[in-house]
Design a protein around this nucleic acid. Structure first.
Lengths: 345, 345
DNA sequence: GAATTTTTTTGGATCGATCCAATTTTTGCT
DNA sequence: AGCAAAAATTGGATCGATCCAAAAAAATTC
């Protein structure tokens, strides 16, 4: 049924080695034989060397696995524009290295980290060190993004703490003193306002990078003599459409809101405008990460550029290098646009 | 260096077969041996059966290759939100089938369609039948999206002609008679206005699905006694920021603009507003495809829902089915939002 | 305890191709 | 033509695991 190299070789009356060379090292074969093999291949409908066989010998696959966060699947993760930008960066580096990229779920049971046919892994978002164990066991190179897994692990990390600090300091410099904050849920769940007593409870906050954001905000506030406990906090998934009203209800006095995601920042702007609150005149809003919408919404959103594409490139490059452990920290930059203004006195 | 199954077998003093069974069919092995093998594996640091070896025997990879349009690379393609939505659909179907998804470039030379380790292909966008030749030769199942490759090829096709017709008919029903159109370039290039003589020259228009859009628009106009030749036409890539002004300059009299992409439709709205032209009062705008921005921009964009996620699912399902050739046509639906209104009399 | 059945275990073949050292053929030179 | 050197070709081993029929061991029956 399936035509193999050996069938072609037999049909052309040459050895397997010669037939193999016709496809992989044509210059080592006399032209007469070369043609004989090729015509035999064509007659039998041979599709060329089956990569399944090649791989076993070659060992290298030229394939990087990008591991998607476990709690969300691959499909859910693709809803994040920032993550897709990150993938763009990985794809760019892959293009240059003539490699491909496979999207892997981190569900136990699935053909994921434990058994995927790849040369290395990029962990897009992890929550626990233990998730790296399987990759380590397989002795394949791997890179962790936005998670500090110690000095022996390749890492590309955005300095989210510094970023959030920039954002809050920007608002403070504009004279704001009453805030509202939008954080991430840990795990799935519905949007909700968090009681002040839990504000600093890291166990409730999304993933490591979000905990860093919280730390940054807390620090910046503290340096201005303010306390995070006095700030109403909303926990919500970025795409939860029902979240923004909750915060505006909970923080009627706030003159500025900072969000852990750009999506929720934009949602808050929309909701404020719907209620007749003017942005940025009555309410300043700052987001985190830059997405296309942030630049074109009205007003354009002041937010943090976190260079996801660059991060993707760096991560993929580390896999291809596969040498000494590297560790790169990316510094976010504040993009001041139209959604922030001086606080009314 | 690398620990293989056979090393573990030797260390545990059992045969390869038994060692293999410990990992793949534990119930066939007595518990004593099972433990002996497992402890040997742990001692040697064996990471479990290497998928490279398994694959050769199993034959099946549980991996779908999504082929990206050749002219753009993988990274460029990920910039298209509609394409990413399509990928979401593929990912959903993969999740259910416990398979994975690899993104393949269609560059010659790259490890692409010709040699990728996959069970089947989804061609995201193709321009010529010949691009399918390699997949056909490899005798792997494949699906083509938005391209009519004949009755012997799995296909998921959006009825772009009907969609565009809906859009133009909507504008006609609102009383519009003077239009502007934004089409796609074939290949890369800078945005430019197309002379009337070339309006119906399909060779200039993007890919097959875009040619269908042109046909739909032409038909709808003709049915209202209008001719596409009288409509100023702009060719531009969706993300070209400099395109919108060109069209507004070329079509100062237009009261309605229809675009082959949502991105350019939004760009035109922004540019019009910048010039003091009110949308939809002075100018109606219709896009194609629905992206998140379209729903939240001001005014929200009237556009066509083309169900990319559903298309992705259907395409992946056809690969998994791998039976009789299927062919699904998806009918777009017009989402009337705020960017269209009655023409001023 | 021998005979029979059932459960475990094993070695050989296989998946499809590539590499390498040894062999055969061709070429070049006198 | 004869010999050496170069080029082309070949068969065996290998990549890492799984399958299968046969053999061995254990459990059951009389």
């Amino acid at each position: 049924m399936i035509v193999r190299l050996i069938d072609v070789a037999r049909a052309a009356k040459v050895s397997r080695s010669t037939a193999s060379n016709v496809f992989s090292n044509p210059d080592r074969v006399r032209q007469v034989l070369c043609e004989r093999v090729q015509s035999a291949a064509k007659k039998l409908g041979y599709a060329g060397p089956d990569p399944k066989g090649q791989i076993l010998r070659a060992g290298k696959l030229n394939l990087i696995g990008v591991v998607m966060p476990g709690q969300w699947g691959v499909a859910e993760t693709l809803r994040s524009q920032v993550f897709v930008q990150f993938l763009q960066g990985v794809a760019e580096a892959c293009d240059e290295a003539n490699a491909n990229m496979v999207l892997l779920p981190d569900r136990p049971g699935a053909r994921g980290v434990g058994s995927a046919l790849v040369d290395g892994f990029i962990f897009g978002r992890i929550e626990q060190l233990s998730q790296l164990e399987t990759a380590r066991q397989r002795r394949l190179p791997y890179v962790v993004v936005d998670f500090d897994a110690g000095p022996e692990v390749n890492a590309v990390i955005v300095d989210a703490r510094a970023g959030m600090k920039l954002a809050v300091q920007h608002l403070l410099a504009l004279g704001h003193r009453r805030f509202g904050m939008i954080s991430f849920l840990r795990g799935a769940g519905t949007a909700r306002i968090i009681p002040a007593s839990s504000h600093r409870d890291l166990a409730m906050v999304g993933i490591a990078v979000d905990q860093e954001k919280l730390a940054g905000a807390t620090e910046a506030l503290a340096e201005a003599g303010l306390c995070i406990d006095d700030v109403p906090v909303l926990h919500a998934e970025p795409w939860d459409q029902n979240a923004a009203p909750l915060l505006l209800d909970a923080a009627p006095e706030a003159t500025a809101i900072f969000s852990f995601s750009a999506m929720q920042a934009i949602a808050v702007m929309k909701e404020a405008q719907r209620r007749g609150i003017k942005v940025p005149d009555d309410l300043s809003v700052v987001g985190f990460n830059d997405i296309p919408e942030a630049a074109i919404c009205t007003p354009p959103l002041t937010t943090l550029e976190t260079y996801p594409i660059e991060k993707g490139r760096l991560a993929a490059a580390m896999i291809f290098a596969n040498g000494t452990i590297q560790r790169r920290v990316v510094q976010p930059q504040l993009l001041v646009r139209g959604s922030t203004a001086r606080a009314k006195s």
